[in-house]
Design a protein around this nucleic acid. Structure first.
Lengths: 231, 231
DNA sequence: GGGGTCATGTAATAGGTTACATGATTCT
DNA sequence: AGAATCATGTAACCTATTACATGACCCC
């Protein structure tokens, strides 16, 4: 994201369209919409013209011709440049080959989960399981629908991936609920005691007490795994 | 994101800190750093003061007192308000209970994958597998290190989740490589023919190479060497 | 006395989303 | 006739990141 001059996935999609053939912006939008790419890529078609402008400014695409039918507004047809073609291959290659550290909201929730009482958390996670099941059912229904048309597997691998990932998340969540309810989760007593009304003020989130350390006021110096500056 | 007045996860972390006890901004940063929350939540401590300002403006936190030691700059200690406490519980509950549609770069890559020739894609995915194995090894090493200190499981569930997710992705990717190489993937012939220099017109998703006829499959390897510096 | 880090802030910039504005054509 | 959709674009806005700027204190 930082290295690339333009990071918006919509730009990648624009390049993908123009590699097929020259198009005007609106056509790109309808093309991609018809292929349901917004299901797997975060696309905001409202930003289309802005993105096209940026790509042109960077020399990755260029105006090819401007047509006009009757008295409709002019349509500018764009083509991809050599630089654009290279950027496309490079970008797509990177997406496929290099796993990027991406943060999910669920992970954030898990990291802060001790901040709520155990029983509440169990309920919330149970609810998540039900939501995930609904999602899965929808995904499978959609898959079945698509299978009727004869769309080959290659064109929907991203779909399979999503299903797999959702299943994994469901399994994890269900298992976690189980561990909380059965009491087999390590540290559960400690966790519960934080929220045991005796100390309503002192909520935790990820205790960093190491060994025999004393919880004095300023324990900031203790845990210095301090490894990186990923920057 | 759209419903919440403030969406930056750093804000949630600030609230989490202040629920424990009043703090000044810098202390929040060191506290969270010491608990390695940036591993699971995307935090940019550079934005801290801006975020604190926003939270104050929204009435979720308020200045409690301003201390001063010697002639150091004043430190403003903040406390959480009732509104802030509610927002915190509500936000965290949502994170845990409600799966949100999140788009990964890999998914985007998969969706556009027909845009590159099959053999190149197989190489790239193979590379991803190796990268994922490295990530997994690192994660497990980190886990082992943490296990030595006696940090209970509750405080690192997010870690387990990440491992599981990475394993799932590796399994998927390896499997996909296998299907491409063995030829068992549906639509593979069609896919290959797009890139066989003949019919650039009919690519239904992604691309056929236009322009210079046959660059061969060498160019992705060349390209990928120059992409190693993170920033 | 020099480097690090404690501690706070501000200003500029980038990046993208939203809303607005326009007008022709086609469908019902 | 009216709605939808084709088709384009601009301007305001918001949010967050980056860079800059300051100065005290602490340890060697």
């Amino acid at each position: 994201m930082s290295k690339r001059k333009i990071g918006n996935p919509l730009a990648l999609v624009v390049l993908a369209c123009l590699i097929e053939r020259p198009m005007h912006p609106y056509e790109m939008a309808t093309t991609m919409r018809s292929r349901a790419k917004h299901e797997s890529i975060k696309l905001n078609y409202g930003s289309l013209y802005t993105v096209v402008q940026s790509l042109e400014r960077l020399g990755l695409i260029e105006a090819h011709e401007t047509e006009r039918e009757g008295k409709r507004p002019e349509r500018t047809v764009y083509t991809i440049t050599d630089a654009g073609r290279m950027e496309y291959v490079d970008w797509l290659s990177e997406l496929l080959s290099t796993p990027e550290r991406e943060y999910t909201t669920f992970e954030a929730g898990l990291a802060l989960l001790p901040g709520l009482p155990p029983d509440d958390v169990a309920d919330l996670l149970e609810q998540r399981c039900r939501n995930l099941e609904i999602t899965l059912a929808q995904l499978r229904a959609a898959d079945a629908a698509v299978s009727l048309q004869e769309v080959p597997k290659v064109f929907r691998v991203e779909f399979d991936f999503r299903v797999l990932r959702t299943e994994a998340e469901l399994a994890f969540t269900a298992n976690l609920v189980g561990e909380i309810c059965s009491g087999s989760l390590g540290g559960l007593d400690e966790w519960r005691s934080f929220h045991a009304e005796s100390s309503p003020e002192t909520a935790p989130l990820g205790a960093a007490r190491a060994g025999p350390a004393k919880p004095g006021r300023r324990n900031t110096a203790e845990r210095s795994t301090e490894r990186d500056k990923d920057k």
